[in-house]
């Protein structure tokens, strides 16, 4: 395997209908990092992830995922979207939804293989949702669904895990559980997580990328109230939190 960084963004610009969403973004994420992307709403966080995933093309700049163009490199990415992109009442079980992660790595014809099913069960077990696997997706609570979507990302056997606001609609107890799990997963893979809750994620991540159209990266230890005010453009209350 090459030694290229997990993600490399150089000189990225992107605009929606002439309105700049990202300006001159340079970011290198090394393998094994756990990086948090924070910033105000409409600051370009989700846009940045979609560019890394090759779902959006930047107007200028280069993107590499594990040294590959995003369309090739994204096979090594497990992605958990902010809002589920599917109809909640779709007739599909948890197990079937997780198995869709195996597409691209399994045979092209017929059903899934035994190996696919073993990997899907293993992913469900890691998020402690294996007991839900025969349940229909629309019978799950918000927290359960989020864990299942994380299982689907893990069943891709990813080198990089990308999560867009994974805990936006769930209570704090589940949020802590999910981030504890991510911390453990970080021993095996690079993780990029978008969050609105900078105080909470600095306890977990190694580096924070502050994004408000332009990007500033900081080690977690260097984040203070002044920096937050600068990022959000208004006064932000700093919350005390623990560091390792």
């Amino acid at each position: 395997m090459s030694t290229a960084p997990a993600i490399s963004l150089r000189g990225i610009n992107f605009s929606y209908g002439g309105i700049a969403a990202l300006e001159n973004i340079d970011l290198t994420v090394q393998r094994g990092e756990f990086i948090g992307v924070v910033g105000p709403n409409a600051g370009g966080k989700s846009t940045l992830l979609k560019i890394i995933l090759g779902l959006l093309k930047p107007s200028s700049g280069t993107v590499e995922v594990l040294g590959l163009p995003p369309e090739q490199g994204r096979r090594h990415i497990g992605y958990v979207p902010q809002y589920p992109r599917f109809a909640r009442d779709f007739p599909i079980t948890v197990e079937q939804a997780v198995l869709t992660a195996r597409l691209g790595q399994t045979r092209w014809w017929g059903g899934y293989t035994h190996h696919d099913k073993v990997l899907a069960h293993e992913a469900l077990r890691r998020t402690e949702t294996d007991s839900l696997r025969k349940r229909r997706l629309d019978t799950l609570s918000g927290g359960q669904l989020q864990r299942v979507l994380l299982s689907r990302a893990l069943a891709c056997e990813p080198d990089i895990l990308i999560l867009d606001e994974p805990t936006a609609n769930i209570d704090q107890r589940v949020e802590t559980e999910i981030f504890d799990l991510l911390k453990k997963l970080n021993e095996e893979m690079t993780i990029i997580v978008v969050s609105h809750d900078i105080a909470f994620i600095t306890y977990y991540v190694t580096r924070v990328a502050c994004l408000n159209r332009t990007l500033m990266c900081h080690e977690t230890a260097h984040i203070d109230g002044k920096l937050l005010d600068q990022l959000y453009g208004t006064h932000v209350h700093a919350v005390e939190h623990r560091h390792d």
């Binding site: 779709f90 939804a97 869709t100 597409l103 691209g104 014809w109």
Partner: peptide
Amino acid sequence: IGVFYKQFLAVSFDEEFATLRGV
């Protein structure tokens, strides 16, 4: 439908995720 059941299911269920998996 028999041969490509899992692709049709993935595309109907979540088009964005199916794209990411190379479908």
